[in-house]
Simulated assay, not measured.
Amino acid sequence: MCESNAYQSDGTLIMEDVLNIKIDGKKIELVDILNQKKNLTGTISEIDLDKHSIFIKLE
């Protein structure tokens, strides 16, 4: 599968197995494989497709 893990910019894990990301300005919604949602305020600073990692700078 193509899930990714979401981390804070310092490497702290936010959510595992993310399948969907919705962005509306500074609002970020993450949805995992179990359809659990997490809403954050911040910006995506890096997406590493090789390592299946998303890095988010939280505000």
Rank of each mutant, 00 (worst) to 15 (best):
E46L: 03
D32C: 06
L19F: 00
N20Q: 04
T43Y: 05
G42L: 14
I56T: 05
K38Q: 12
F55K: 11
D32P: 10
I33H: 12
D50N: 06
L58Q: 05
K37A: 08
N35H: 14
S53F: 00
D50S: 02
K37S: 12
K27F: 11
I33Q: 15
L58E: 15
L58D: 12
E29K: 13
N39V: 15
E46V: 01
Q36I: 09
D48F: 03
L30N: 08
T43A: 08
T41M: 11
K51Q: 07
K26W: 05
L49W: 06
G42H: 10
K26V: 03
K57M: 04
I56R: 01
I28E: 04
K57F: 02
K27Y: 11
K26T: 12
T41Q: 09
H52N: 05
H52L: 01
D32W: 11
F55Y: 15
I47L: 04
D48E: 11
I47M: 06
E46C: 03
L19H: 06
F55G: 00
K26N: 09
K51D: 06
L30E: 10
D48T: 00
L30K: 12
K57A: 06
N35F: 14
T41I: 12
E46P: 00
F55L: 03
L19R: 12
N35R: 14
